[in-house]
Structure formats: structure tokens, C-alpha cells
Design a protein around this nucleic acid. Structure first.
Length: 424
RNA sequence: GGAGGGAUGGCCGAGUGGACGAAGGCGGUUGUCUUGAAAACAACUGUGGGUUAACUCCCACCGGGGGUUCGAAUCCCUCUCCCUCCGCCA
């Protein structure tokens, strides 16, 4: 959510931001009109309320019954007006909020123009693309052959886009989770374990609603949503709080499963474990002061990159163009990991500086030392890599001619002595 | 699942329908005193919104929503959460 003052003072900036994302800026004018209307109504109704307050106080002190009753009667018409205006105001307010809720964040000036994936900019590529003296296989062949990924079982118990990991593959995923969490803890993040089901307010605060309602699983009996990312509860934990300046920046990391309907991607990435309705992820999250978020963003990108570097996975860093940057974000980088078997770059991480877009929705503020006014702080989020795609890279890049998979050195401490995955 | 009790400012805690945006305490800030600190004393100290060039003034907020009333922290309804006891089960 953007600051309403921005619409009063510099609406053109908002319009320009929307155009940069290839969106129609018309809602900006709606917001401005509603804001004007809202303030007119506010002034009118507040004046009447002020009158009611003073008269009510007078009534309380009056002894003369006749005069007293006359005052009370007079208040009847005032109250009727107040009721009518309050209703109107509520209507305007709701309309205003609902439009404001779907206006995206303003892209950072460093975000490249463009609306499509092709307009994203590859800023760097790190690591050697592995060479093989045999034909490397995709994981959907390697896994079943080794007996460690079972697609049929996933379909059997749930349906398409579900799978079962077995033995060393299940353990590999667990090792990756532990490795990533420990890495981020070392980088200064505080580990959190959060609920995986959240209420609607929490999803709204994180900016996933109303836009992505289609992509979320919901328990209609309890009105709870399954989280699509740990970013949602990590935004929610400080809702409506005023944080101490000294406690900033706050750096959190959390493991969580993520649940997504993927309706928009029907028919895409159907093979393998690339895009499931349920996947695991280790997330990084930061709360910073506004002036610190740019530097924090660089740190978070580097922290995510470190995951690939330590695992020896070749990756490239992509600066997303305006049209491809998520609506809550100011600026986002994707990390794409190389998968030797599928022969493609897989998006394994997205790191975003959200500015005050989420904190405004979630009402998370801080107070500067000796300052009277509270300020909205900035939030940043980034995947410390999604697990399935990291698994794919590890499996496919480390495969050997006989179909076995070498476990990277850094993961061995969690592998219970397993150094290579061989057919079971 | 059954029976009770509760939710008030950063924290603790009072609050008979008009004095209450809210006593008192703690904490915090500033000042006096002190070489400095502590102690003591004094003043200030919630959030959001509107209005104004500004001083100002006004409105709303006592867990959320609704209602009664000229007037609600206070009465009524409802929801959520917390606590205690009993039962049941991981």
C-alpha cells in the first residue's frame, strides 16, 4: 500500500510507476477523487460530532428539565445527520482502501524498463557450467532410476504435481534445509519457526491478497490460509507494532513448506519436481530503517548467492524488469541455478526490497531516537533458495556416468555418512 | 468438550453512564542539585486522522464488530484471544 499523501502531492510519480509496469494508471485519479470526497465528509461529520460533544456536556450539567429536554430533542436531528454522513464516509473509505490495495509499489529507478521476461537483465553469471563425457539426465529420470523420487506415489495419495522423496533424497532435502538455515544464522539471521496457516489479515498485510486469492489454499471452515511462502507469517509477526530503533535491522530466517495452487501455470513445468503445489523453502526476511534498506538488499542478495557458491551450483543473477517485478516490490533480483540435466536455468530465489509497501499494510513502524513521529520501516524478503530446484541442481549437476549422484562436501555433515546416492 | 474469570497507554494497574484520553505506579525524556554518577525534587511523556502558513483547534481510538443513549472504557449483543478448574486425547 502506498502513502495516500503521495497521491495528493506527487500523483504523477505513482502514475509513472504504474506505466513502467505496463499498467493503466486510471485508478490513481479514482483515488484522488475519493480522497477529496473523504476529507469533505470528514470535515462535515466531525464538525457535527464536535457540536454533539459540547451539547452533551451541557445537558449533563443542566437542571432545568424543560430546557434539558429541548436540547436532547435538538440533538436528534444532529444525530440523524451524523449517522447518514458516517455511512457515506464508511462507503468512501472502503472504496478508497480497496483501490489503494491494488495499486502496486513504485519501481526503483534502477529497475530496467520492460514488461516481459525477456526484458530482465542478467547482471552476472558465477560458477563453471559442468561438462560431462556422457549425456546428463534430467532429475525425473535420475530420481526414479535411483528409487529416491516417486512420482506415482505422489499422484496416488494426492494428485498431479505431488511426489514422494525416499531415503537419501529425502535426507538430502533435509540436509539442504539444515545447511541453509545454519548458513543464514552465520550471516546474522535469527531462525524462526512460524505457523504455516494464517488468517486473512496476515495474508493481506503481506500483499498476497487480494491479488493472489486464486493461488492460495484456504480452509473455509476456519477461514485460514495455507502460506504460499514464509514471507507471509514473517511479515505478520510484527503487525501493529512499533519496534525499537535499536532493535533494527531485524534479520530473520525461516524454513517452511509453501502451498500454491499454480492455476496460472497450468500445463507449465509439469515434469519432475520443478513446480509442485507443495514445496519447501528457507526464507530470509529483514526489517530495516528506510535509509538502510538499499544496503540490506545488497547483503541479502549476497547471502542468497552464498548458498549457491557453497554448494558449488552455477548460477546467474537476474535484475527483473519493471513488468516482471512483483507488485509489492520496489526492486527484485532472481537467482537462477543451472540444471545440467534439463539444460536450463531454474529460478530458485527471488530477493526483493519491498520498501514500506508491506509495513504500511501491516502497520509496522519504528520510532527514531528522540523523535516524536513514528515511521514505517522497510521490509525485504528473499528465498534462501527453494528446495526442489536446489535439489534438481544438486542432483543433475553432480550425477555420474552410472547414474549415481555425488553429495557435495558441505552437505555431508547432515548425510549420516552418505557420500553418493546409488540405486537402492 | 463442560464450568467460570479476564482483555484498559511502552509495562503494571484503577476506573459509580456526564469530571475520562483515562487516577496511581514503573519505565522514558528534560531540568534543578552534583566534579561526574546515583539519589531526591520538578515538568513533560499514547496512536491515528482532519484543519491551519503556523500557533491552534477538532475528530476517533480502553481486544474486534454491532447496538442502547443527548452522552459509553463503563450497559446490551456478538466474535476473537488469554487465564483457572474438570473431562478427554495426541
Amino acid at each position: 500500500m502506498l502513502d495516500i499523501k503521495l497521491f495528493r502531492e506527487d500523483a504523477e510519480r505513482v502514475r509513472a510507476g504504474m506505466r513502467k509496469r505496463d499498467m493503466d494508471p486510471a485508478p490513481v485519479d479514482e483515488v484522488i477523487a475519493l480522497d477529496v470526497k473523504r476529507r469533505e465528509l470528514l470535515q462535515e461529520v466531525e464538525e457535527l460530532k464536535a457540536e454533539r460533544n459540547t451539547v452533551s456536556k451541557e445537558i449533563g450539567k443542566m437542571k432545568d428539565q424543560a430546557k434539558r429536554q429541548a436540547k436532547i430533542d435538538a440533538m436528534g436531528t444532529v444525530n440523524a445527520k451524523i449517522g447518514k454522513l458516517d455511512d457515506e464516509l464508511k462507503e468512501v473509505d472502503e472504496k478508497l482502501r480497496s483501490i489503494l490495495a491494488v495499486i502496486p509499489n513504485i519501481p526503483d529507478e534502477n529497475v530496467p524498463k520492460g514488461f516481459k521476461e525477456e526484458d530482465n537483465v542478467v547482471t552476472k553469471q558465477v560458477g563453471e557450467i559442468p561438462e560431462f563425457d556422457f549425456e546428463p539426465k534430467p532429475h525425473w529420470e535420475l530420481g526414479p532410476a535411483l528409487g529416491v523420487i516417486d512420482f506415482e506415489q505422489g499422484v496416488k495419495v494426492t494428485g498431479s504435481r505431488f511426489y514422494v522423496l525416499s531415503g537419501p533424497a529425502a535426507r538430502l532435502q533435509r540436509a539442504l534445509i539444515a545447511f541453509m538455515l545454519d548458513l543464514h544464522i552465520g550471516q546474522g539471521y535469527l531462525e524462526k519457526y512460524t505457523p504455516f496457516m494464517v488468517k486473512e489479515d496476515t495474508v493481506f498485510a503481506a500483499g498476497q491478497l487480494p491479488k493472489f486469492a486464486d493461488n492460495l489454499y484456504k480452509d473455509h471452515e476456519e477461514d485460514l490460509y495455507m502460506i504460499p511462502t514464509a514471507e507471509v507469517p514473517l511479515t505478520g509477526i510484527h503487525m501493529d507494532e512499533i519496534l525499537d530503533e535499536e532493535s533494527l535491522p531485524r534479520q530473520y530466517t525461516a524454513y517452511s513448506p509453501c502451498f500454491r495452487r499454480e492455476k496460472m501455470s497450468a500445463g507449465r513445468d509439469v515434469r519432475g519436481i520443478k513446480r509442485g503445489h507443495q514445496f519447501d523453502k528457507v526464507e530470509m526476511y529483514m526489517y530495516t530503517k528506510p535509509d538502510d534498506s538499499d544496503a540490506a538488499f545488497e547483503k541479502m542478495v549476497a547471502d542468497a548467492e552464498a548458498t549457491c557458491i557453497e554448494l558449488g551450483i552455477p548460477y546467474r543473477l537476474i535484475l527483473k524488469c519493471a513488468g516482471d517485478t512483483s507488485e509489492a516490490a520496489r526492486i527484485s533480483y532472481d537467482i537462477e541455478v543451472w540444471a545440467a540435466g534439463c539444460q536450463e536455468w531454474l529460478e530458485a530465489s527471488s530477493i526483493s526490497n519491498v520498501g514500506d509497501y508491506q509495513s504500511r499494510r501491516a502497520n509496522i513502524r519504528y520510532r527514531g531516537q528522540g523523535e516524536k513521529k513514528t515511521k514505517f520501516l522497510h521490509t525485504l524478503n528473499g528465498s534462501g533458495l527453494g528446495l526442489p530446484r536446489t535439489m534438481i541442481a544438486v542432483m543433475e549437476n553432480n550425477q555420474q556416468a552410472d547414474g549415481s549422484i555425488l553429495i557435495p562436501e558441505v552437505l555431508r555433515p547432515w548425510m549420516g555418512g552418505i557420500e553418493v546416492i546409488v540405486p537402492s
